[in-house]
């Protein structure tokens, strides 16, 4: 379908972008890769007055090394992420999850930042960002601020990015020590969103699991950390039995939705199975 009429701005810097947003009227939408926004506009579920296209803001694209962290520009496309050496070295979990996003065409246009700001509960990257304790750098008329992942995802399709603001980059801390990672995605066809998915990051030390971080996709309106699993794993022996026992707690406290693909109780069941599989793989068992 054809979207409703809108005005269009194409800034080349972050400053110009902020200005275009400020001047854009009542309902302004930022356009990144357009893979979520354009379909919603074509279905006329959204009819913004102005669309501010970040496609020419080159400064927002790319990955850089910043000492103890890598910094991923919001406009870095999924396909850029997949071939980036810094991500491959320091945060392969991001590449693994990104590789499960949609299909080549979508990955070619869709962006890392867009996927995170869109914050679809079924989207793959929010739980990964949460498990990696990423930090979100946001700019707006009031200046620049950094928000930890734990505070970034506020509600269904809602993040800490306020009206008039932009997500500019995401800082992902480099992990020290011997870490293993795994993203276990469960969906019905290869191009589909996650019914449930689990991101696991595990540090092993002397035959034990020293630390584990487990992010859950689509187990509620926002991505979640499976804290009970993490606590049960901390210091546990690195055995299949210990992991299985801890994984049983993956769905505790979750309130997933029910839809065509899965009722809530089935999602909760999947979370336990996928957590066991993800942690087992991440722990190298």
């Amino acid at each position: 379908m054809i979207p409703a009429p809108f005005s269009y701005a194409r800034p080349t810097t972050v400053e110009e972008a902020l200005q275009a947003i400020a001047e854009g009227g009542e309902d302004v939408k930022v356009l990144a890769g357009g893979q979520s926004l354009i379909p919603v506009m074509r279905l006329r579920l959204a009819a913004p007055e102005t669309v501010v296209d970040l496609g020419r803001v080159d400064g927002l694209r790319g990955v850089r090394d910043d000492g103890d962290a890598i910094v991923i520009g919001a406009m870095t496309t999924h396909s850029d992420v997949l071939s980036d050496p810094l991500i491959a070295e320091h945060a392969p979990l991001i590449a693994e999850a990104t590789g499960t996003v949609a299909d080549r065409q979508v990955r070619h246009r869709g962006t890392f930042g867009g996927a995170l700001v869109h914050a679809d509960p079924a989207g793959d990257l929010p739980a990964v960002a949460l498990a990696l304790d990423a930090e979100f750098v946001i700019v707006g008329p009031g200046g620049r601020r950094t928000v930890p992942a734990a505070e970034f995802f506020v509600d269904y399709l809602t993040t800490a990015v306020e009206e008039g603001e932009l997500l500019v980059e995401v800082r992902v801390p480099k992990l020290a020590g011997s870490w293993g990672m795994r993203y276990e995605k469960f969906n019905r066809v290869a191009q589909a969103w996650s019914i449930v998915a689990v991101a696991a990051v595990v540090r092993r030390e002397n035959g034990r699991i020293a630390e584990a971080r487990v992010g859950l996709t689509n187990m509620g309106p926002t991505p979640l950390r499976a804290r009970q699993v993490e606590e049960a794993l901390a210091g546990a022996e690195a055995t299949a039995e210990a992991v299985a026992a801890a994984a049983e707690r993956a769905a505790e406290g979750t309130e997933p939705s029910s839809d065509l693909n899965a009722q809530a109780d089935y999602r909760q069941h999947l979370a336990t199975v996928l957590t066991r599989r993800a942690v087992t793989a991440a722990a190298g068992l």
Partner: peptide, 12 residues
């Protein structure tokens, strides 16, 4: 009745 948002995974 289903709970929560009625869209399936991926509201787009």
């Amino acid at each position: 009745s289903t709970e929560g948002p009625s869209m399936t995974g991926g509201a787009l």
